[in-house]
Design a protein around this nucleic acid. Structure first.
Lengths: 220, 220
DNA sequence: AATTTAATTTAAGTATGCTTAAATATTATT
DNA sequence: AATAATATTTAAGCATACTTAAATTAAATT
């Protein structure tokens, strides 16, 4: 299957998961940077390949086959991120950028070799779960968005759910990294902002950021 | 530039080096598995991009720019081969197959990271020279084809110049590996065959193989 | 409920990178 | 040197993955 198709099913899968956006052609088009017309065309084509269900004016729904393809691409993406991060100490933004290209030119054989080499990791350096070779994915049920945390409690960063360079630069600058711990010092509920202490620095995060940073309650 | 273009200039570069084949459109077409018509079309297009010189019915000649592009792709190919070989212990055939895809989706930035990680190697696991970031390539001047070796002398394998699975399978089976040493026991000049001893086994190689296996004289 | 706004679809068209078939030029053979 | 064989080019056409513009449908607003 082509790069365009792989990116299309991946975009649907992700929009479906986030369910902030829906999976109508227009939203997929926006995500991929193509015209609405191109997205409708592609949707029809993929319906004929049994990768998704298309009904006029309705949201697109991946079939089992389409979901499997999406998870396979996501698996390769996240394995590459994990490998590049480990070997070359590249930034979260850089590993994402490279993985976005490599994911489409990676055989299942090579993906398995990478996974094996890394000890079959369940999460990538963003904390995103890596689907296994059978398309099974670990869902993190006990992690919550930073916006839902409580003042005075300590948490461990479990996921930085973004593709955005500016966000990653901010994270790098402030020590916001998968596995690091932070203390929530204040929730400004009115303004939907959160103040945290991390590495002895106090920083205030706005809504955009508190909804893509996920954390687990610290056990101590 | 597209995958098709990168593969096209790479094919010209390689046919030019081997100079057994020439670089007329038909030979490039055969190498790439496309029609002659497609090769002519592409040649015209690349001439307009100043990547090569095209004159009707003549051999194609890469410009400096075209040569630079070819070397850049070859650099990425060989760096990937070196990395995959080191990390995953894949066979020569497997690393070639994967590198053939990855080479086109690798930024210069990532290529430099791979090179750095490997200690800026000058040769890949086939013994092929890896161009550096400036497109400079080390030429091995003291290595000779196995067909030109002398009976009774010991040599070190310096290059296995092929893309062919059958050849690599044969090499793997018989211990023909970059860096290994072998003894030339007999040259059958009439039949253009060579008998060698390697790992205490005597094997006879035909012309196809003795011209793609390169060796250096052993110093002891 | 009617109207405005927005999203979606259809239609027509484009660039890339191929194909096959026919025409033309080159190379090899006698 | 003429002919046969081979290579190259031209021409026409196709699939993919896009585009813009116009038409249609759905959703939001008044």
């Amino acid at each position: 299957m082509s790069v365009a198709i792989e990116n299309f099913v991946k975009a649907i899968y992700k929009n479906d998961k986030n369910n902030t956006n829906d999976t109508k052609p227009g939203n997929i088009a926006k995500k991929l940077g193509i015209s609405n017309a191109a997205a409708t065309d592609m949707a029809k084509k993929l319906a004929s390949k049994n990768l998704l269900k298309y009904e006029k004016y309705q949201a697109l729904q991946l079939t089992d086959e389409g979901t499997k393809m999406a998870l396979n691409v996501i698996r390769k993406h996240r394995l590459w991120e994990a490998l590049l991060f480990k070997l070359f100490d590249m930034s979260l933004h850089e590993i994402h950028r490279e993985a976005e290209l490599l994911e489409h030119e990676t055989s299942n054989f090579l993906a398995d070799r990478i996974s094996e080499y890394l000890g079959n990791p369940k999460f990538d350096p963003h904390g995103d779960p890596i689907p296994n070779a059978h398309g099974e994915i670990t869902t993190i049920d006990n992690s919550i968005a930073l916006s839902n945390t409580q003042e005075g409690k300590t948490y461990i960063i479990s996921r930085l759910m973004s593709d955005d360079k500016e966000f990653f630069d901010f994270c790098a600058l402030n020590g916001l990294k998968y596995g690091n711990s932070l203390l929530v010092t204040k929730q400004f509920n009115k303004n939907k902002m959160t103040q945290i202490t991390i590495n002895n620095n106090n920083i205030v995060l706005n809504e955009d950021f508190t909804n893509i940073i996920y954390v687990n309650e610290s056990s101590y």
